[in-house]
Design a protein around this nucleic acid. Sequence first.
DNA 1: CCGGATCCACAGAGATACTG
DNA 2: CAGTATCTCTGTGGATCCGG
Lengths: 123, 123
Amino acid sequence: MNKEKSFHSKCHKSKSCAKYETCPMFLFHKLVSGKWKLLILWYLSDGCLRFSELKKKLPDVTQKMLTNQLRSLENDRLINRKVYAVIPPKVEYSLSEMGEKMLPLLEEMYKYGIDYLKESDNT
Amino acid sequence: MNKEKSFHSKCHKSKSCAKYETCPMFLFHKLVSGKWKLLILWYLSDGCLRFSELKKKLPDVTQKMLTNQLRSLENDRLINRKVYAVIPPKVEYSLSEMGEKMLPLLEEMYKYGIDYLKESDNT
DNA sequence: CCGGATCCACAGAGATACTG
DNA sequence: CAGTATCTCTGTGGATCCGG
């Protein structure tokens, strides 16, 4: 997964980002471009959710994929994973501090969606 | 690709979005969650680029994938595709009106990336 | 020559069953 | 309940071919 090979002599435009790994936009892209990550973050923006609750909200995502995406988000420190040692098992996911910083961005994405729908209607 | 099957009784929280297809966040997610779409939009934010220029800026993306992503973005009317009937062929891609509306959002993503890098350094 | 279509091989995603 | 394990199959990468 980690391709540390490729360097972008000009990551983009004239802004400062000499290398692949250190370009902010590539980084952001890497963080959220997982197949379901944006939606997971969005659903967690209201507060912590159990695995099964998240699964219910994302019926198109397979259990395996959901686990993968959550692990990835956890590794990138965008969400927290809290395991309760009870039976039946209970695992809660919530936005981390870095994850919460993405909240305004998520709101803007939501607004863009509204705008897009409006434009589509006019067509 | 088009799964029009699944409905989300509660797309998210209490905001208004009864169905899968009409939830703004799902829509936004669908628009940009392609494997390379965000970066393509980002690179096009400076102005139109030829296919080969885009390819140069995204060395990790295969030609086929780049074509796919561009087609998808074009179908979603986020970018324009202009073909010049010359030899050798020349195809230019640029942000559409809807694509340009995403510019502030892209800038915010970039800023988030900077912030994320800063936080990582402190760790 | 450039944009992209086609063919094949393989990693990754879907579906289902199983476990602590 | 929250995952793993296994199998299958789609989608992606890589190379090649093509039309303008």
